[in-house]
């Protein structure tokens, strides 16, 4: 589904990704872990097409297409979804309107008919249950005045409605209390299907107790320095990131 080869990216003059290789197949959950500044959020944002980053080398193939050739909206229309670390507030537009606009744009791009607001409400009602939310939240402006937890939950709601093929969760656990974490993780788990995949970007192992990964990758200095199974996350939790960084430093 996703093949990243020797991906390099810069923000301004600074090279942040320095040769990433990663393959994700349908049905898999990958965790990308690493200390602050390792490049894991950059990787998530580059995949979504964030304009602040420039890809300077390497390739990304997504479902057989050159992802880097696609505008951010085209990536979303092709089934890619990024749950933002810091979801953006849009005062003046209701959550319901925004989400229906996104839903219909994606349908349109895939040759499907747009749905009217009544049909959309039916769909929404079902998806709201997934994140244990009341419909009132939909008449509020997008993320505007939402608590940190509400913003993250809103990302998962959007994901539930847009039903992506590849979901990238960028630090979705940061700023969540244990109850919110449980709700968010349960939402993500219910959306897992054999034909979609998830990349979970996180600093802590905590989220991975709830969203159990098939593979864990450790990013350091813009490269993946170690990959393994879910037990690698536990090892990181116990030992921290230093031993890996030291090992890499010694090797290079």
């Amino acid at each position: 589904m996703l093949e990243i080869r020797d991906l390099r990216a810069t923000a301004g003059d600074k090279e942040i990704l320095r040769g990433i290789d990663l393959t994700v197949n349908p049905g898999e959950v990958h965790a990308v872990m690493g200390p602050n500044g390792s490049g894991k959020s950059t990787l998530a944002q580059v995949l979504a097409g964030h304009p602040a980053y420039k890809v300077t080398g390497g390739s990304i193939r997504y479902r057989g297409e050159d992802l880097l050739e696609l505008e951010p909206e085209a990536r979303a229309q092709a089934g890619l979804f990024l749950a933002f670390q810091y979801p953006v507030e849009i005062p003046g537009v209701s959550n319901a309107y925004f989400l229906r606009a996104a839903y219909n744009e994606i349908r349109k791009a895939n040759g499907l008919e747009e749905v009217d607001s009544m049909d959309f409400l039916d769909l929404l009602e079902e998806k709201l249950k997934l994140v244990e939310w009341e419909p009132e939240i939909m008449s509020r402006a997008v993320n505007s005045g939402f608590s940190g937890g509400e913003k993250k939950r809103n990302e998962i709601l959007q994901m539930a409605v847009l039903e992506p093929t590849l979901a990238i969760l960028d630090e979705t656990d940061s700023g969540l209390d244990i109850d919110a974490l449980r709700i968010v993780a349960a939402g993500v788990n219910k959306l897992r299907r054999p034909d979609n995949a998830t990349i979970v970007v996180t600093h802590y192992q905590r989220l991975l107790n709830y969203i159990v990964p098939d593979f864990v990758h450790v990013l350091s200095g813009g490269r993946i320095v170690k990959s393994g199974g879910k037990e690698l996350a536990l090892e990181l939790e116990a030992r921290g990131y230093e031993w890996l960084e030291d090992a890499v430093g010694a090797a290079s």
């Binding site: 097409g49 909206e73 979804f81 537009v93 925004f98």
Partner: peptide
Amino acid sequence: ARFYARSRGIPAPAADRLLTYAFAAE
């Protein structure tokens, strides 16, 4: 905000109109 809307599948011109309208709607 523009990137956020586009990352949800809303094309750039529509995202611009949406955000401009949002500015007024507030």
